[in-house]
Structures are given as C-alpha cells and as structure tokens.
C-alpha cells in the first residue's frame, strides 16, 4: 500500500488465496468518505459538475472511441476482461461503455451528483469506481469467488449466484460481481452520509491511477476522508 499523490491513502482490499494465485495483478482499493449534510448524493448535480461533463463530452468522437482501446489503462481493462472470461467487444469495459453511451446520447448526460462524479472520474482516468453505503457493509472489502446459491447483497429478492464467480465482498456478503453495479441492498441511498468508494486495479494499471480516480470522486463529492 502506498501513500496517495493527493494526501489520500486508499486502503488495499484483501484477496482470496485462489484469486491471488490465479490473478496476481488484481486488487481492490477502497476509501471511506463522509458526505456533507447537503446536498444528497442522489440529488441533481451542481452546475460546475454539469459543465465538467459537457467539457468531457467534447473530447470524444467515433474515432476517439475506437482509439481508446490502444491507450494503456483502457487496454489493460480490455485484456483483463478477456482473462476473466468476458469479451470486451460484446460486453464493453466501463470506460468503453461510457464512451459508447456518450456517442448514442450525444453527450455525457447528467443523472445525479454521485453518478456524475463516478462518471467524471471514469472518463478522466479510465479507472471505474463504484460507491457503497458504508452502513450496509461489514469489514474491509476484498475479492473472492462466490459460493453456490449465495445471494448478492444478502437480500431475500436477490437472485442466487452460481458458484466460482468473481465478486467484491465484505467479511459477510458478496456485494457485487466484478465490474458490475453493486446489489441494491448495499448501494448508496439519498440519506447515506458515509460511503465507501472502491476501484478495481488490474495488471497494467498503477496504484497511482487508482488513487487518482478515488481522489477525484472524493473531492467532487465535497467529502472528507
């Protein structure tokens, strides 16, 4: 674990032994942040953040969207997708999915303060970040294989997971499958005041990049570490 470039120190999550042996470059980095009392993380984004999204929208056109796959960080996620049995052409990596959606919509559309923050960080760094409600978590985050029939997020309505799928988990529950949205039970709500931001580090992506992504999220949310 290394000190951050922007006075933050992301925590390196744990990895199950079989994951560490098989995918030594995979890591999860997370950060606890306290949100200010107002605005709510699910409220509309402030004007500067919307302007930032618009500025970022202008960076991308069709050619840039295709050329993205040659850049070091997006390329590393593409390669890693193939290593975990996902085809990045059929199911694009988070950065490619965001850029593809930008081409369809004609711009990065604003959704909420939290969603826009995660999007800005993703487009700026290429590193995807997800947010969880800290109250719903138990212990530090890590990566492990799912158990057969285990419900995602522990909810009664959650569909059971097949065995041996890569999941982000706390000490109790599987919270999200890798590179997917977290289960509804542990996602951030409007009343959440403490959240956990996490990012996945893959081979070819430096710790500094991951910390940068988390730092952008924390500073945009106006949060305290």
């Amino acid at each position: 674990m290394s000190a951050g470039v922007h006075d933050i120190e992301a925590i390196e999550g744990w990895r199950a032994r079989e994951v560490e042996e098989e995918l030594p470059g995979l890591g999860v980095a997370f950060l606890h942040v306290d949100l200010p009392r107002s605005p709510s993380p699910l409220s509309a984004s402030p004007q500067p953040l919307r302007e930032r999204l618009q500025t970022l929208s202008n960076r991308f056109n069709g050619a840039k969207a295709i050329a993205l796959r040659r850049e070091p960080v997006p390329s590393a996620y593409r390669v890693f997708f193939r290593h975990i049995g996902l085809d990045p052409d059929a199911f694009p990596t988070p950065i490619e999915a965001a850029v593809r959606q930008r081409l369809i919509d004609g711009g990065f559309l604003t959704r909420s303060l939290l969603a826009d923050t995660l999007l800005v960080s993703l487009v700026d760094t290429g590193v995807p970040v997800w947010a969880l409600d800290a109250q719903a978590l138990d212990g530090p985050l890590g990566v492990r294989l799912s158990r057969e029939g285990e419900p995602l997020g522990g909810g009664r309505q959650s569909p059971p997971l097949p065995g041996d799928r890569l999941v982000v988990a706390d000490s109790r529950l599987a919270l999200a499958t890798l590179f997917d949205e977290p289960a509804a039970e542990c996602s951030v709500k409007g009343r959440s005041r403490r959240v956990v931001l996490y990012a996945l580090q893959v081979p070819g992506v430096s710790w500094v990049c991951v910390e940068e992504a988390l730092w952008i999220c924390r500073s945009t949310l106006g949060a305290r570490g």
Binding site: E22, I66, R69, G85, D89, A90, L145, L161, D164, L178
Partner: peptide
C-alpha cells in the same frame, strides 16, 4: 471493431445477459 459473433436468430442489437466474471 465488432468482434463477437452474432448467434443464429439473434439480432446484433438484442440485449444479452452479461456472463459473470470467473477464473
């Protein structure tokens, strides 16, 4: 850039469930 093969009877733009990541 589209590399994946479209199965017989499946449309290029039809939504498909993403397979779960594994080892």
């Amino acid at each position: 850039a589209a590399g994946h093969r479209v199965a017989v009877g499946e449309r290029e733009d039809s939504p498909r469930a993403r397979p779960a990541p594994r080892l």
